[in-house]
Amino acid sequence: MKAPTSVEPMSQRMTVQFPYKRSTGEVTGRFLAGLKEQKKIWGRRIAGQGVVVPPNSYSEVDAKSGGEWVEVKDEGTITAVGIVAKPVADLHPSDASFAYVLVKLDGADTSLAHIVKDRLGELKVGARVKAVWAPDGERKGTIRDIACFQLVG
């Protein structure tokens, strides 16, 4: 007998998944605790970088440790926007059309990545947005404790 000479293109499905558990470290932990317990957004003033949100325990510029806590507003200005018209279920952070945005919060010198779910046609760089908080009792100490941002006015 000979080996099969030709076959239809074949494929096999596989799923790779594992439930990881990540240590936040102290600085990220305190930032997340601010979201969960205070509905406040805390950044860190780091030499050479200004106020960094989300905060770090070190400078991304010169790798030195340090910084001091600074509260920033939960409102800011969009610096970049990308609309996802048709999200993929279980993959994207929203089932309905949404936009990825970078938001420079008032008082911060860096932009935070998040999503906007409404009035997508009105989004543009320079537009003002405000955080929509997850309700009390539903915040878990993750970045999704800010449910999304929405246009102001």
Binding site: S23, E26, T28, Y58, A63, S65
Partner: peptide
Amino acid sequence: KQPDVNCAEMVRIAIDKALLDAGLSHE
């Protein structure tokens, strides 16, 4: 388990010690 640090902070402990050992800094 080193639950008090994330990966970045854990490697920085080793880096700080190596630089100190060499009498050097990041620059």
